[in-house]
Design a protein around this nucleic acid. Structure first.
Lengths: 272, 272
DNA sequence: CGACGTGTGAAAATCCTGTGAAAGCAGGTA
DNA sequence: TACCTGCTTTCACAGGATTTTCACACGTCG
């Protein structure tokens, strides 16, 4: 055996990135690129409480320590200690070897020097979270709750109460993808691209078929809720709501999206 | 090192490093420093067969691609694909952003530019191979009990009552891995990667074969329990349950991070 | 009222796993 | 060295499970 196969399967899982930097130009360019790549990016103004960072379930953090102020290193050390799965990349202007070594020893994963090309920053963030992900294979991953539904990534399965939905792998991945961005309308092409891993051929109905299967299984075990909504001409939206149609925006709105509101989903398109 | 640095003691494991570079001065200095740090370093003259690299059980690899010749990148890609746990750092002279991005995308973990301070190279190598924080080895001296099964890591063997299952080394390692995360579905690739130590080639059925052997031996001595469950299209799950199908292990949340609160998954993570 | 996008059921094509057995290896023995 | 022995890897095939494809009914939109 040995050699053979160059497996292209770069399972590009969506990366959650937070950026702490005040160079708005850089941040903007970065945001544009990461969005294309399907990452979820968020910009932070400065140091925020550790609990909030934890709650964000990030994969990667890009930070310019000067924005953090004087105790930047103490802060970053705590971050690294607290979140062993988080890839931390420091991006800074001029720096000495000693500083860099100290930073890396603290737990920083990579250190880039400004000015730096956004593409390289992205590549390094990617590399860093690739490594982090491998280090701890899906350890945490608390179950996601949506309506009566409980999605457990560690079991590749969803449950209503104790009963399994008996999802196949594809069904599960689709559900997981949808449930990962509740309230967001995802286009078919995007869904296909992310679940199947390659571009959707024109006229392919696979997504529709799997949506149907999901709906059937959901309906069977949780008939009083509707989870997946169709947006004509666009795609689908995951939003658990009781049968009577009352939208239940869970109090989870607590800290999630403080800055930008989650796409107010043009109700004109909504199909009950 | 004379001036000791307050480093997080958590991962003081000795690192096995291989260096592929012809800058003898640099290599020598590096060797001196790593030796003080207690690393095991080995210098290679150039590309060597993948099998040999695998056999070295390295943690980190520092390489100057110019020493590898023309197909350096193809080689490194294969190395990274084969050994996902190996930290690979490229150290090269002048390079373009595009080159660096390409390298990082191939699987390289970090890229340093010469001339570089050895201390920084070491810090980066360390950062790149910093991962297994779990002191698994003999920490849990107590035998693991699962159903009628008793797994004794100290003997590399499992028993039902006083009778040994007569597991071979691989069989035992596989069983131990599975039993280490009861209730979790482990993918074949992950299993292979952790038991065999390198990436699974496409189409390799070794895992299946060993699962069968395990099942046979388990069935023979503990016929009234079923331990290993298949998840179609995914992998296997270890979950001891009596023949009648009653699950015994309550869905205890993963015990991994005690500190991380099972936060109700604040899902809305808006794309900025 | 069309044109087009979506829901549906079922057949067809694929892929996945269990299995038995042969071939390849490494280590010990005569 | 030649041989034996137990372990690991590789192969080929059968039976199922899953995924894809198709044709058609139905809804939505302009």
């Amino acid at each position: 055996m040995a050699h053979t196969i160059a497996r292209p399967v770069n399972q590009q899982q969506t990366i959650r990135l937070a950026v702490i930097d005040d160079d708005s130009g850089f941040v903007t360019v970065l945001a544009k690129r990461t969005e294309v790549a399907g990452w979820q990016q968020r910009t932070l103004a400065g140091a925020i409480p550790l609990e909030e960072l934890v709650a964000m379930k990030l994969n990667a953090l890009l930070v310019d320590p000067t924005v953090l102020g004087g105790d930047a290193w103490a802060y970053l050390e705590r971050v690294c200690g607290m979140l062993p799965d988080l890839g931390v990349v420091v991006c800074t202007g001029r720096s000495t070897v000693a500083q860099r070594v100290r930073g890396l020893r603290l737990g920083i994963d990579d250190w880039i020097t400004k000015p730096c090309h956004p593409e390289e920053a992205i590549a390094r963030l990617e590399a860093v979270s690739r490594r982090r992900r491998r280090a701890r294979p899906q350890a945490e991953a608390g179950p996601v709750i949506a309506g009566e539904l409980e999605i457990r990534a560690d079991r590749f399965q969803a449950y209503v109460g104790e009963v399994s939905l008996d999802l196949t792998r594809r069904e599960f991945e689709l559900l997981q993808l949808l449930a990962d961005s509740p309230g967001q309308v995802l286009e078919r092409e995007a869904i296909y691209q992310r679940v199947w891993g390659y571009a959707m051929a024109h006229g392919d109905r696979s997504v529709d078929v799997f949506i149907r299967k999901l709906r059937q299984k959901l309906e069977k075990l949780s008939p009083s809720w509707s989870y997946i909504h169709t947006h004509f001409g666009v795609g689908y939206r995951f939003d658990p709501e009781p049968a009577d149609g009352t939208a239940v925006v869970p109090p989870s709105a607590s800290q999630g999206q403080s800055d930008i509101d989650p796409t107010p989903a043009p109700e004109a398109f909504t199909v009950a």
